[in-house]
Amino acid sequence: MFKAKLLLIAALFSAMASADEQSIYAAQSGWQFGLSTGYGKIDNPVHNSDDIPLYVIPNIEAFYGDFAFTNFELSWTPLSYDHHQLSFVAKMNRDGLYFIDSLASSSVLASLTTSALPGAPRPPSAQTQPNARKRVGNIQNIGERELSFLGGAQYLFDWQQWRVSASVFSELTHYYHGQQAELALSRYQQWNKHLVVASVQMQYQSNELTKYYYGSQRPELAAGFSYYQPQHAFNTSVQLTYQYQLDEKWRIISDIKWQTLDDEIADSPLVSKQHLLSYYAGVAWSY
């Protein structure tokens, strides 16, 4: 059985790590280490694959001039003004984590970048309805899906309590030569030690990316799956984050994310869920 974890919002928690009254989006300097313990879960949409528990989430940041490293994300920011920022970023593509065979390996990779809120009810439509065109086989016998990396540019615009983020990435590892783009709008509200961040996001994935991870060809046909070749996809998500600052080093953190996969992905015989719920809550320490 394939088991894996999903990369979620370590970058957002990194920005929140030293939030002040002026802006949670202020850039950091030097290095920072943090660790949170708690419980959470990430939905895995791949057929017959377990959802993924989360327990310990490390946060490692290093800044040197215009360069920054945050867990699995490396960025260079040549242009930075009061409200505008342009960066070039290399990061891991989350889709590959769904297909990792080793639970231990996927746990380590996902725990480096995750978080969310416990006990959230699953809406009735969270499970994809059966599709008569789908023929489902043995997920263990499908073709190999490699973990890929993306590189591209990200533009940020900050105004008061709002942030607009736009990014475009291309695959660097040459498994499928695809592209991915993201557009997000976030707003934060802070009251003394309480901080709430709400965001909405739209994600574009090209034909090459969706076919590589969610398409079915000869190996999948031999494993008993029906033939399927998806086109480009637009995935949407909403996210709510809350933190309470106990003191300079300790915080209570929680996060919940609800993602809807495009029908192009949900109709794949390899996929059994269209709506993905991810959450985490715990206590975080930073140094």
Score class of each variant (00 low, 15 high):
L6Q: 08
A10C: 10
F13P: 10
F13T: 11
A17E: 15
A17C: 10
A19P: 01
A19Y: 11
E21M: 02
S29D: 14
G30Q: 09
Q32W: 06
F33A: 12
F33T: 12
G34N: 12
G34R: 05
G38R: 06
G38P: 07
K41H: 01
I42W: 08
P45A: 04
D50M: 07
D51V: 04
P53T: 03
P53F: 00
P53N: 06
P58A: 03
P58M: 02
E61Q: 13
T70S: 11
F72P: 00
E73L: 03
E73T: 10
W76K: 06
W76Y: 15
T77F: 13
S80L: 13
D82H: 14
A90V: 10
L97M: 05
Y98N: 09
S107C: 01
L109V: 01
S111G: 09
T113C: 00
S115L: 07
L117W: 13
L117T: 13
L117K: 10
P118R: 14
G119E: 03
P121H: 07
P121F: 12
P123T: 03
Q129R: 05
P130W: 06
N138I: 04
I139G: 12
Q140E: 14
E144W: 07
S148Q: 09
L150S: 05
G152P: 01
A153F: 03
A153I: 05
Q154A: 11
L156E: 15
W159K: 14
Q161P: 06
W162L: 15
S167P: 07
T173A: 02
T173F: 00
Y175L: 00
H177Y: 11
L183E: 01
A184P: 04
R187T: 10
Y188D: 04
H194E: 06
S199W: 10
S199L: 11
Q201I: 01
Q203W: 01
Q203T: 08
N207D: 15
N207L: 01
L209W: 00
G215R: 01
S216A: 10
S216M: 03
Q217F: 08
R218L: 02
R218G: 00
L221D: 02
A222L: 09
A222N: 07
S226Y: 00
Y228E: 00
P230T: 03
P230H: 00
Q231N: 07
H232R: 09
S237N: 10
V238C: 12
Q239V: 03
Q239C: 04
Y242S: 09
D247R: 09
S254D: 09
S254G: 15
I256P: 01
W258Q: 05
D263V: 00
E264A: 07
E264R: 00
I265Y: 02
D267M: 04
S272A: 06
Q274T: 08
H275E: 06
Y280M: 13
V283L: 15
